[in-house]
């Protein structure tokens, strides 16, 4: 089974870390990640920019672009994509394509990434595993 581990914390605090604090936390986390990579158990790792950098596309009926993060409490996080786009317009275009393919209610919150490790080795083996099961 593949699991996603979603990280929650206060963004104001995290984005006020000094560069030393930042380096320390990242080094400690990298140790855990490296172990998992060696076992070929780690998939993509991403770090998001704060919610102030987010833009949300509301779909279902008339599409609406809203500045800021997804704010509805009656809907839950069900999945995510990582796409490479020239700018926010490009990311919105992808989100609109997804909305056209799945026009029901819901939202796409678009959040730029600060950091991304694809860890592609697992991707290859694990996708085969999921498909087989």
């Amino acid at each position: 089974m593949l699991y996603a581990i979603l990280c929650y914390n206060e963004e104001d605090a995290v984005f006020s870390w000094t560069q030393d604090q930042e380096a320390k936390v990242m080094a400690d986390l990298t140790q855990v990640q490296d172990k998992l990579v060696a076992q070929n158990r780690l998939g993509p790792v991403a770090r998001l920019l704060p919610t102030t950098a987010a833009t949300t596309l509301r779909k279902g009926g008339e599409q609406l672009v809203i500045d800021g993060p997804f704010a509805e409490t009656k809907e839950q996080l069900l999945g995510f994509y990582v796409v490479d786009c020239a700018d926010l317009e490009g990311a919105l275009a992808v989100a609109r394509d997804l909305a056209a393919a799945n026009p029901g209610p819901g939202s796409y919150e678009i959040r730029p990434l600060l950091l991304f490790h694809p860890n592609a080795a697992l991707a290859a083996s694990a996708v085969a595993g999921v498909a087989a099961s």
Partner: peptide, 18 residues
């Protein structure tokens, strides 16, 4: 230069331009 702050700043300009 602090890459984290630069990334956040660039993302905010991108939002503003829209």
């Amino acid at each position: 230069w602090n890459g984290k702050m630069i990334a956040e700043g660039l993302a905010l300009i991108d939002k503003a331009i829209r």
